[in-house]
């Protein structure tokens, strides 16, 4: 798993790449939280999933965890770029009601 980021205007962009499962998630959880803490003044975080080659339900738990952290700072969370398979998992679990998908 690889995590890169950029702050653009009032948005924190977090780009996820690789295969997100129960094994790989451990490596990015702390990193994502540290980024959120450091950018707590911004108004929203956008998670870009375009680089994800695989995601199972571990991804749902990971995203909800970050959503809760962002909420503490009053920051909104958005998703963009999921492939068809990730999109099905995210829809199935109702995640888009918490973190809307930005249509490109």
């Amino acid at each position: 798993m690889e995590l890169t980021w950029s702050a653009q205007g009032d948005n924190l962009y977090i780009y996820l790449a690789g295969e997100l499962d129960e094994h790989s998630v451990a490596g990015i959880r702390e990193c994502a939280d540290a980024l959120i803490d450091r950018n707590a003044g911004l108004s929203r975080a956008v998670f870009n999933l375009a680089g994800l080659k695989f995601m199972d339900s571990t991804g749902i738990g990971f995203l909800i965890g970050r959503y809760k952290r962002l909420k503490r700072y009053g920051m909104g969370m958005y998703l963009e770029g999921p492939d068809k398979s990730a999109d099905r998992i995210l829809s199935l679990s109702g995640l888009y009601t918490l973190m809307p998908k930005i249509e490109e």
Binding site: D56, I60, G61, I64, S93
Partner: peptide
Amino acid sequence: EPFFTTLPSEERSGMGFTIMQTF
């Protein structure tokens, strides 16, 4: 049941079986 997990503290979603059933 969707969202049922015995380990909520570990960020488990409880969606594993639902995903297997659906896919």
